[in-house]
């Protein structure tokens, strides 16, 4: 009998199936509509005639909607698409086939990641269109002086923002897979993943403050904490962009590199943890 070898084609099949399943779920459409609603609701700012600063307000709302609903989607969709396979026993049928568990994990990850890319991409494009439309209107009408130096919105940076957030959501998907690979209920996976998300957002406190701790054991504990969890504050570049500060190339490259490393690490950890899971 010939050996079964690791197959990217199988990963691809799992990924596609995962993506299709996600898109056909009501939850995805629901999130898209809510996020869109929030982005479009920034139109209330028109009533106040703020002039050029209106663009900042629109960007704030758009970025906020992307971050909030992207994070929710990353966690809930991963738990739903990965953990539910175990819970609903659909995984039994798949894993009884000649397929490596790593292929299953990578396929699931890629499927969810593709879903997150579609979500982030859609939101970023809609936000850009909205900004462009309002910028043009304000430039030609209400507040032309503010645009002496040309257009104010850096569309390239908004695009970069979309990529960075997508990578962050993908890390979050990896984290949720690791959590789900050893947890026993869907709710537990979701809650624990949100707690970890929160810790990752606050990690920078530990990262910058451990040296100031006076009591050595506390110092060590805080240092450990800062090393174990990734620094999600690093992806928080939306405010800068909304304030009109551009992101230099090297900074962007470092953030992206950091994200890619963690995506790989969490995927491998998920494989490690799932490898011996009893189905």
């Amino acid at each position: 009998m010939s050996k079964v070898v690791f197959s990217p084609a199988r990963i691809n099949i799992i990924a596609k199936n995962t993506f299709l399943e996600a898109v056909r779920q009501k939850f995805f459409g629901f999130l898209v509509i809510i996020a869109l609603g929030i982005i479009l609701s920034s139109q209330v700012f028109r009533d106040f005639n703020f002039g050029a600063p209106e663009l900042k307000f629109i960007a704030d709302f758009g970025f906020g909607a992307i971050v909030l609903f992207g994070s929710v989607l990353a966690i809930v969709a991963t738990a739903q698409l990965f953990f539910s396979e175990i819970e609903n026993k659909t995984a039994i049928t798949i894993l009884a086939k000649p397929i490596f568990r790593s292929e299953f994990i990578f396929g699931k990850f890629l499927g969810v990641s593709l879903l997150l890319l579609v979500f982030t991409g859609m939101m970023t494009v809609i936000l850009s269109v909205l900004l462009f439309w309002r910028e043009t209107a304000i430039m030609e009408g209400v507040d032309p002086e503010a645009f002496e130096a040309g257009r104010m919105v850096a569309y390239g940076d908004i695009f970069l923002y979309g990529i960075v957030q997508w990578l962050k959501f993908s890390i979050l998907c990896g984290i949720t897979m690791v959590v789900a690979s050893f947890s026993n209920t869907n709710l537990y996976s979701v809650i624990l993943s949100f707690v970890i998300l929160l810790i990752c957002h606050l990690q920078y406190l530990a990262r910058d403050a451990w040296a100031q701790m006076e009591f050595l054991p506390v110092q060590l504990a805080v240092f450990m904490l800062s090393a174990v969890f990734p620094n999600f504050q690093l992806f928080n570049i939306g405010d800068q962009i909304a304030l009109g500060e551009s992101i230099p190339f090297e900074l962007g490259a470092r953030i992206i590199g950091y994200a890619l490393i963690y995506i790989i690490v969490f995927n491998l950890l998920a494989v490690f943890s799932f490898r011996k899971r009893e189905i």
Binding site: M1, V4, N17, E21, N88, K89, T90, T93, A96, P98
Partner: peptide
């Protein structure tokens, strides 16, 4: 070994499949 499942078909107990 993964290869052991190459020539096996399995119908699980009370099977659940992707409903969609």
């Amino acid at each position: 070994e993964v290869s052991s499942r190459r020539d096996v078909g399995f119908l699980p107990e009370a099977p659940y499949f992707y409903r969609y």
